[in-house]
Amino acid sequence: MAFLPADQRELFLPIVEGIHENPPWSAFMRNLVARTYARRAFMLIALANAPADHEPTVLHVAAPRAANEPPLDFRQIHALNLHPYGQLRSERVYDLDEMLDYDRRDQLARQREVLNAMGVRYGRWLRISAPGVADAWLLLVREREDFSASAVATLSTIAPHLASALRTLGALIEQRLQAAMAQAALARMGAGQLALDAGGRVMAADPEAERWLAFLPDPDHAQGRRLQLLPETARALEARCAELAAAPAGATTALMVDERRAIWLLLRKANLALVEPHAAPAVIATLRMGRRENERSAVRTIAAIHGLSDREAALAHALTMGESILEAGRRLRLTPETARNYSKRIYAKTGARGQADLVRMVLDGLAPFS
């Protein structure tokens, strides 16, 4: 089957670009329904490491003539006990008749009755598998006549491309998870980060930095941004970035970028380990706002790590907030004598050599991430 430039534009490119859509492959599915003259369709994506009770991602598509019809109920179709999804050979196109149970007449009659009620008389199944990463199932249905040989050939041709895209999507999902974990940990501590080039242009910013800082389009770069700063501060940032770009590894400096809100940036020469191809930043800028961890979670963490009682852990956490033993005791409704006795037990259990050492121990541990 010969493919034209239109096929490239309407099918193959949307498979690649669809990796970044939410949900993935929306444009591809619309184009595929139009190309095969399907009436309705769905794509179901299940990640290999998803918990058992996690709902798969399901994308429903209908042709314009079926826009007012209900979407295909994949749960109801699954309940018909058609050919088990996991046993379908990956990248092979299956006719609906191959999925029916011809060995049991009663079951076959029930399957046909339910499918007919859903307007499913003709269908094509396609399973795409990325072992250890994800599985996808694609179903296209028609009501009045079967799919043409050309439509089936189209499905067969796009199958390996879709399988490759599914593997890429799995890798991208893992990277997104890694980034989300890192960003969430920083956000719990009120920290945000930006990647800057040697001229101070913003290459990337995490959600916490986006929240606290303002940005302007870079007039010299169509896709670039710069921090919205006072002119003298902007010039200072550019100069610091240029200096750090030429500095030895580990070089740092600090710059006040918003005096009214007391926002400082810690600028560090970037030394990120990136794979090729990459655009390496010259500087990583870190900001930190006045935010502390959830008190209850932190107290539970301190108690678990150091073998403290809940009251002892609450007192230890209060000390890390800058309170004295007596101030913390009053807030926790402890008498001065009880607060002092608790502090002695805390020092004994944690091995801290005093209040300052205890504060260091807690802040160096996991409590700030609670």
Rank of each mutant, 00 (worst) to 15 (best):
A262Q: 15
I263N: 05
W264R: 12
A246T: 08
T252Y: 01
I263R: 06
C241E: 00
E259I: 06
E238Y: 03
V257G: 08
E259H: 14
A247Q: 08
T252S: 10
K269W: 02
A247W: 07
T253I: 08
P248W: 03
A247S: 07
R235K: 12
G250N: 02
P248H: 02
L244G: 06
R240C: 00
L266S: 11
L244S: 00
R268H: 11
A254M: 02
L237M: 06
L267G: 01
G250D: 06
L265T: 07
A246W: 10
A251P: 01
L267Q: 03
L265A: 10
L267D: 06
A251Q: 03
A270N: 07
R260V: 14
E243C: 07
A254F: 05
L244E: 05
A247Y: 03
T253K: 02
L244M: 02
L255W: 09
R235T: 09
A262I: 13
E243M: 11
D258C: 12
R261M: 13
A251C: 09
A234R: 00
R240L: 05
A247H: 04
L244P: 02
C241S: 06
A270G: 10
G250V: 06
A242K: 04
A270Q: 02
R235A: 14
I263L: 15
E259K: 15
A270K: 05
T253F: 09
E243H: 07
A245S: 07
A254D: 13
T253R: 09
W264P: 07
E259N: 14
R268S: 12
A246D: 12
R240K: 13
A270D: 04
A245M: 06
R235L: 13
L265I: 09
L255Y: 01
L244A: 11
A246P: 03
A270H: 00
V257D: 01
M256K: 14
P248V: 05
R260F: 15
A234W: 04
T252L: 00
T252R: 07
L244D: 00
T253C: 07
I263S: 04
R268A: 09
A239Y: 03
R235Y: 00
A251L: 08
A247R: 02
T253A: 04
L255M: 09
R261A: 14
A246S: 13
E238P: 05
A242Y: 04
R240T: 01
R261L: 15
R235V: 11
W264G: 00
L244F: 02
E238I: 08
R260H: 15
D258R: 09
R261H: 15
R268T: 13
A251I: 06
M256A: 14
M256F: 13
A234Q: 11
R235N: 11
T252M: 04
A249F: 10
M256R: 15
R268I: 10
G250L: 01
R268L: 10
A262E: 14
G250Y: 06
A254T: 15
A251Y: 00
A249G: 05
K269V: 01
